[in-house]
């Protein structure tokens, strides 16, 4: 299984290096106060959500699946390797973002709670989106699953924007957050990525079922 994760990293080493470069560039911009940190974290998460789909597209191009399923690993391990790749990516961005937050906090004394909250929420989205997209990739293939990625990302955004425009969204409940202690907020927010992880696990089980029924 480690070999397959290694494969994803090796196949996309150029893409990953350029992403890393962009992340460092953005971190510098955040430090110089050119960009808002929350925006950058969310942007990087979206970029990373696209990576697993790119991995599927590369595999499809090389017809890799047929070969991978012929290896002495079993279908669930081949599927598991892709999920671990997603987790590795999520963990890397999460750690880098945490590191960035620490530096910004030390240098600029910005609101730590807000930054951590943004990170937790975007990390959860970063886990939830692949949880929906990965089984679709196994079921439909990379090309046919790609539109769903945009649907999954943009439809909730459009719905929220529309609701708020029509004054149907009651955001006053969020004001109650201000009354809570920072420790309580961060503690609660830390549970969000756990929900993302649980969703990813359920998604893995679904993908295993899809892969088990598939013919290669």
């Amino acid at each position: 299984m480690t070999g397959l994760i290694m494969k994803d990293i090796l196949v996309m080493r150029k893409t990953l290096t350029s992403y890393l470069f962009i992340m460092v560039l953005y971190a510098v911009m955040a430090l110089l106060d050119i960009f808002n940190f929350g925006f950058i974290i969310t942007f990087v998460q979206v970029m990373l959500m696209v990576l697993p789909i790119t991995a599927f597209a590369y595999d499809e191009q090389a017809k890799w699946d047929r070969y991978a399923m012929s290896l002495p690993l079993g279908r669930s391990k081949v599927v598991g390797a892709r999920y671990l790749f997603v987790l590795v990516l999520a963990l890397c961005t999460f750690s880098l973002a945490l590191f960035g937050i620490a530096i910004i906090y030390l240098l600029q004394q910005e609101d730590l709670v807000e930054m951590l909250l943004t990170l937790m929420v975007s990390a959860s989205i970063g886990l939830l989106v692949p949880a929906i997209i990965l089984p679709l990739n196994y079921k439909l293939g990379a090309e046919r699953a790609r539109p769903y990625l945009y649907t999954v990302i943009f439809i909730p955004v459009i719905v929220v924007v529309l609701l708020s425009k029509l004054n149907l969204l009651d955001l006053s409940a969020l004001n109650a957050l201000e009354a809570l202690s920072p420790a309580f907020i961060i503690g609660g927010a830390a549970l969000l990525p756990l929900v993302g992880l649980a969703a990813l696990f359920i998604s893995y089980l679904i993908s295993c079922r899809v892969a088990a029924g598939k013919e290669y």
């Binding site: 480690t2 070999g3 494969k7 196949v11 090389a62 290896l71």
Partner: peptide
């Protein structure tokens, strides 16, 4: 079945754990 962006030595690294 190996991706165009790989090199022969990478193939060894990928298959060795399997």
């Amino acid at each position: 079945f190996f991706h165009d962006t790989l090199r022969p030595l990478d193939v060894g690294k990928i298959l060795a754990p399997a």
